[in-house]
């Protein structure tokens, strides 16, 4: 009987330990089409965060590929969404301070793909709309021409109801 009780107590403790609210995201490793090998690209194009709340943290790695034959320096920055998905509004002004970019100025070797961790850590007590959106912009800063290109990843955040 004592063994049974001991087992139940241990099992209970283990189960309660497993029920933490911060499971890491399942990251699908990008396997780009071969034709993208010599292009600059980012992946994913969209990250969706659900059940978010003040004090919570969500993170996801942004893959950046340098398709050029020489090293390229990129800038990885927070960007107010130019337009938003249906039902979403642009992130509150404070959101820029909640976003952490692990490597804001990575230099990638020729044909290198690198993951840069992006995290959103909303301050406790902060307020946000039910559904808000911000972008992470990636730009090859070695571009010298008048017309330059930039790639952006949408982050769609839905707050816990």
């Amino acid at each position: 009987m004592k063994k049974l009780i001991g087992f139940l107590v241990v099992a209970g403790l283990l189960l309660s330990a497993c029920a933490q609210p911060s499971a890491p995201p399942v990251v699908q490793t990008p396997e780009p089409p071969p034709e993208l090998y010599d292009k600059i690209w980012i992946s994913p194009g969209k990250v969706e965060v659900g059940n978010f709340y003040p004090g919570a943290r969500a993170e996801y790695p942004l893959s950046i590929h340098n398709g050029k034959d020489e090293p390229v320096k990129f800038s990885v920055t927070y960007r107010v969404a130019d337009n938003t998905a249906e039902g979403y509004v642009t992130a509150p002004g404070a959101a820029e301070g909640w976003v952490i970019i692990a490597e804001p100025a990575p230099v990638l070797a020729a044909k290198e793909t690198r993951q840069v961790l992006i995290a959103v850590e909303m301050s406790k007590g902060a307020k946000a709309p039910p559904k808000w959106e911000f972008w992470i912009a990636v730009k090859d800063v070695t571009q010298t021409g008048m017309v330059q290109t930039e790639l952006a990843c949408r982050w769609l955040v839905e707050m816990r109801r």
Partner: peptide
């Protein structure tokens, strides 16, 4: 925990964003 905390979920599909512009200057 089930009643108080719904886990924060993070999902993404591995799509690729790439763009070229032929004339830069």
């Amino acid at each position: 925990f089930a009643a108080t905390y719904a886990e924060v979920t993070v999902t993404a599909t591995p799509t690729y964003i790439a763009l070229t512009n032929s004339e830069g200057s």
